[in-house]
């Protein structure tokens, strides 16, 4: 099931959506005049930069697990390090460093940079 719409798009639909996502959302938005920012996963943050978490994309269990570690909406999150080859991501929240799998970090959505 697609989480944002609530409709099941089927395997083909999901692929299309993924392509659109790659084309329009997942790109770094560096040259946009006026600095308009869209939602993006924390993994697209530059190393050492901080932003505010606006959404956690996932089910109850995922959100609960993140919450227990201190990763919640409204928190400032700093990207400390990205391990190569889709490896884990190290973030800092409340002066604590936390290692997250890449897939998990991709579901932590941030808004404007601080």
């Amino acid at each position: 099931m697609n989480r944002s719409t609530g409709y099941d798009l089927g395997p083909f639909g999901r692929k299309i959506l993924w392509l659109l996502h790659l084309l329009f959302i997942h790109r770094p938005i560096s040259g946009v005049p006026g600095g308009i920012r869209m939602e993006q996963p924390v993994t697209s943050l530059e190393q050492g930069k901080t932003a505010v978490i606006i959404r956690l994309e996932g089910g109850f269990l995922f959100r609960k697990k993140m919450g227990e570690m201190g990763i919640r909406e409204g928190k400032s999150i700093r990207l400390v390090a990205l391990q190569p080859f889709h490896g884990p991501v190290v973030v800092e929240i409340d002066e604590r460093e936390i290692t997250l799998g890449h897939g998990m970090a991709d579901r932590v959505i941030i808004g404007d940079m601080v």
């Binding site: 697990k65 570690m69 884990p88 190290v90 604590r96 936390i98 290692t99 997250l100 799998g101």
Partner: peptide
């Protein structure tokens, strides 16, 4: 084999 999630 779930992903790592660990406090440092």
């Amino acid at each position: 084999s779930p992903e790592i999630c660990l406090e440092i």
